[in-house]
Design a binder for these strands. Structure first.
Length: 440
RNA sequence: CGGAGCGUGGCGCAGUCUGGUAGCGCACUACACUGGGGGUGUAGGGGUCGUAGGUUCAAAUCCUAUCGCUCCGACCA
């Protein structure tokens, strides 16, 4: 993509409405634009990141055996009356009426809808298990939206729903999602820690929030220090027995704000870590709560009818964009992990109009594209400083800087922004060597 | 929903107390100089001062209402 034609409205100054760093950087780097409180438009750069995150989530869901569907944003109120949640949900739910004066709502979640789909078409235990997910916009009319995209009213969420015949099956489904979540976040460069969460009226221990640690996180969390540098995800057989893996994660102490246990923390002593956290996912077993209420049953092997055992599994897809930025940035801008970066390489032509520079950049640009490398080529007639500042702001992993001075000496500058080390390192290399480094 | 604050050109702000017909920086346009970390100069363009009503000879400024947005708290992916 040529920057001269790309819609990338970067801001030198920070808009006054943004207080936290991810919100500031998303506005400044031209990723999003606010429409109204907690509701945003996604501009080209931001949308690219959103799509990358969405793709990772999708791939890991598919890998774990979940199947993608797409349910509507607008749902009929009657469905929610069946489960009793139409009245229970409160003003967070956006209620609307259609032209026939029918009660509708903009879905804040989809348990009712998915249960209705299943009850009409799943009749036998032989049809189980099933896990269906979709990635869809949700709306929750938060009293006080804040933190930009991290806590908007409209947000993109992956929600999966598992259906099993019995508790053992439900637990297997739960474990699959548990491991899939660890993988999903890891691929985004994030260290997500599964923390014991409120399991509601159902009880039990099958409810975990996945929290990433970031200094600017929204709440205080605590966990065993082993979580910070574990490697337990290796060699997991997702179709085989996941219980040992899940046990390895869940036997160590980790708790969100409301679930913390002072006695256990005291016991841990120096092994205890407290930090700020951002919740990016939540998995939850809730048994037959909806299947009973909505009459979603199958015939079991014993000839008796049973309500399905269900669980739901959410990932805040749009929130993750902000969470990644909270985790990876410096004073100059964002530092994207390559897996979610909007482009892999930023190519800077320091002197547009200079025959050598232009030729060299055009060659590099074409070559990278031929190799399937996503490259953003700054071919604008801007000052060098402006180009550097913009590139650092949008935070691509690799920058390739081509200028007349370097070309005379047969070198270009490679700048690697390392999200793990939180550094941006520059190095002058011959072009061939530079390309080699970038393309490995 | 309780508490606080803010709406003035695309962005950041001053002007409001003490009423006199709108200003600064950045960005934008043109030209020149410049050219490896947001450069300099000259000349320009752009604003019903959130909206509605009121007071007044005169309102960004005073009064009333209303809408929007932000921050702190309680609540949530």
């Amino acid at each position: 993509m040529r920057l001269s034609v790309y819609f990338l409205p970067t801001l030198k100054e920070t808009p006054s409405e943004a207080s936290i760093v991810s919100h500031r950087l998303m506005l400044r780097s031209g990723m999003i634009r606010q429409s109204s409180a907690g509701i945003y438009s996604w501009l080209p750069l931001g949308l690219r990141v959103l799509k990358k995150i969405e793709r990772i989530v999708r791939e890991e869901q598919d890998r774990a055996g979940a199947q993608e569907v797409l349910m509507p944003t607008i749902q009929p109120a009657d469905l929610w009356r069946e489960s009793g949640r139409y009245d229970a949900y409160g003003p967070e739910m956006l209620r609307i009426k259609d032209r026939h004066d029918r009660d509708m709502l903009y879905g804040p979640t989809n348990e009712e809808l998915i249960t209705e789909i299943l009850r009409g078409s799943v009749k036998s235990y032989k049809d189980l298990p099933k896990n269906l997910y979709h990635i869809q916009w949700k709306f929750r009319d938060e009293v006080r939206p804040r933190f930009g995209i991290m806590r908007g009213r409209e947000f993109l969420m992956k929600d999966a729903y598992s259906f099993d015949l019995d508790y053992e099956g439900a637990k297997r489904s739960y474990n699959k999602m548990f491991v899939a979540y660890l993988r999903t976040f890891e691929r985004m460069g994030l260290k997500a820690i599964p923390m014991k969460a409120d399991s509601g009226p159902i009880g039990g221990d099958l409810s975990h929030e996945f929290v990433i640690l970031a200094d600017t996180g929204e709440s205080e969390v605590a966990c065993h220090k082993d979580f910070l540098d574990n490697d337990w995800l290796k060699d997991v057989d997702i179709d085989g027995g996941l219980q040992p893996t899940v046990d390895a994660f869940t036997e160590k102490y980790a708790a969100t704000d409301g679930e913390r246990d002072a006695a256990k923390e005291k016991e841990l002593g120096g092994d205890l870590v407290t930090a700020r956290g951002i919740e990016v996912g939540h998995i939850f077993y809730f048994g037959t709560k909806y299947s009973e209420a909505m009459n979603c049953r199958v015939m079991g092997p014993d000839g008796g009818e049973a309500a399905l055992e269900m669980g739901s599994y959410g990932i805040g897809v749009s929130r993750l964009v902000g969470a990644v930025i909270e985790a990876f940035h410096d004073d100059d801008g964002i530092i994207w992990p390559e897996s979610v970066a909007p482009f892999k390489v930023g190519l800077i032509n320091l002197k547009v109009g200079d025959a050598e520079c232009d030729k060299s950049c055009e060659n590099i640009y074409a070559m990278l594209q031929d190799h399937g490398v996503e490259v953003l080529y700054d071919d604008r007639e801007e000052r060098a400083g402006a180009k550097f500042a913009d590139m650092d702001l949008i935070g691509l992993p690799w920058q390739l800087v081509v200028g007349p001075r370097g070309l005379k000496q047969g070198v270009v500058e490679v700048k690697f922004s390392d999200h793990k080390a939180n550094t941006r390192a520059k190095e002058e290399l011959p072009l061939e060597a530079a390309l080699k480094r970038i393309m490995v």
